[in-house]
Computed example of a mutant assay.
Amino acid sequence: MASTSTSSIEKKSFKYDVFISFRGEDTRKNFVDHLYYALVHKSIHTNYIDDERITRGKRISDDLITAIQDSRLYIIVFSKNYASSSWCLDELVQIMEECHKSTLHTAYPIFYDVEPTEIRKQSGPVGEAFSKHENQDPSAAKWRVALKEVADLAGFELKNTLDGHEAKFIEKIVEEISLELRFIDSSVDGKLIGIESRVKGVVSALETGTDDVRMIGIKGMGGSGKTTLARAEFDHTSGWFEGNSFKYDVFISFRGEDTRKNFVDHLYHALRHKSIRTYKDDERITKGKTISDELIMAIKDSRFYIVVFSKNYASSSWCLDELVQIMEECQKTTIHTAYPVFYDVEPTEIQNHSGSVAEAFSKHETQDAAAAKRRQALNEAADLAGFELKNTLDG
């Protein structure tokens, strides 16, 4: 990646740290949505113009060109339909022109569901998407050059990074962007350079794994940051102490094949980022095995439960046994609370065991003695106040 000196940055003040170029129909509500909020959460000033608002056939405006010029770094999210949009391709040409003009700019290609060679050679789905421009648009030649140039840059390829886990992939991208911006003032929203290492030092000294009381004094000259460090330490650790003996704040129950590498991955890392102690277990499960004593103990040792209902959740006896245990814990005491999340199914499908849920559940109906209590647990969970993805924040 290109490096930048402090003196170079002082010569130009950028309005935005990052500009994201992407094809809305492919990545608006999933990858780009998560990436945008991860960058903003790190106080990285990020701009993108969603092509959902673009008038069909319209070329990029002067405002967009200015936004690109006023951005320090560019993230280009290549997806299968990126090259079908003349707007995206015009953005890309403008981005590459800015990179040619000045070493202050750096472009990061993200190969979301396409390979670098497909962008470089305009082959596969990229070739199909690009073909409609070939003989119809005079800009096709410079678009092709821009695609080849950006594909030759060092970037990130989802399928070959961290086993395709989107949340971890996004963390890696944000870490790289943060590193590139390390010389830019990052004190926005109270984010202070160097505070994290100091907080970690205090946490280490606290030895939070022990049972006895710990007291730490912070001393220093006036104005040296004692109060700031104490405040940061409190913000970091206050969530750990709620007057209870729970080992975990949250236990996530989910069907791995449906949500492990997308929704649950993002949810888990978002909770952990907020210092919420979270338990999830799915990949280590032996097929056909009933839930272990260790897992039952993890459920009992959790304060809250998030149950992510997806199309194949009810096909797993493991998931259903988890749900039964969760609902039993909720009935024993009001200390526990379960939150159903209806990811790609509706509450009525869980409640009535209809649609895709019925298909998934049907294999247990006559074969498993536990089917009745699993059915009851599904009914009870569906009646709780929860979250339905398709009806929340436009999905």
Rank of each mutant, 00 (worst) to 15 (best):
V264F: 02
G256H: 06
F254M: 06
L267I: 05
G239L: 05
T259H: 04
T237Y: 00
G239R: 08
K261Q: 09
F263E: 00
K261P: 04
L267T: 00
D265N: 10
S245M: 09
E257Y: 00
S238G: 02
S253T: 11
D258V: 06
D258H: 05
T237H: 03
F251L: 07
L267D: 03
E257A: 12
H269P: 00
R255M: 14
H266L: 07
I276Y: 05
N244G: 07
I276G: 06
K261S: 06
E257G: 08
F246Q: 06
R255V: 14
G243H: 01
F234R: 09
A232Y: 00
S238V: 12
R260C: 11
I252E: 00
F246C: 05
N262W: 04
L271T: 10
H273W: 11
S238T: 10
H266T: 06
A270M: 06
E257H: 01
F254K: 02
L271M: 12
K247A: 13
H269S: 07
F234G: 00
K247T: 15
G243F: 00
E257R: 03
F246Y: 15
F246D: 05
T237I: 15
L267M: 09
E233C: 15
D249G: 08
D235T: 12
K261F: 08
G243A: 00
H266V: 03
D265G: 11
L271F: 12
A230E: 08
H273Y: 13
S275T: 14
E233D: 10
K247S: 12
K261C: 04
I276K: 09
E257W: 00
R231M: 14
F254G: 03
A270D: 09
L267A: 05
W240G: 09
K247G: 13
E233L: 15
I252Y: 00
A270Y: 04
A230M: 11
F263R: 01
V264I: 10
H236A: 09
H269V: 05
R260L: 08
D235Y: 11
T237N: 08
F246N: 01
A270L: 08
D235V: 10
A270W: 02
E257Q: 10
S238K: 14
D249C: 11
F246H: 06
H266N: 12
H236C: 06
F254H: 08
F234C: 11
E233I: 15
D265Y: 03
A232P: 03
S245E: 14
R272A: 10
D258M: 03
S245K: 14
N262Q: 10
I276A: 07
V250C: 06
A270R: 10
I252H: 01
D249P: 11
H266F: 07
A270E: 10
R272M: 14
R255I: 14
E257I: 12
G243V: 03
F241S: 11
A270G: 05
H266Y: 08
S245D: 15
D235G: 09
H273D: 13
W240R: 15
A230G: 14
S245G: 10
K261V: 06
T259C: 04
G239S: 10
D235L: 12
D265E: 04
K274A: 11
F234H: 10
T259W: 07
Y268V: 05
G243C: 02
H266K: 06
F234M: 07
T259I: 04
W240V: 12
F254C: 05
S253R: 08
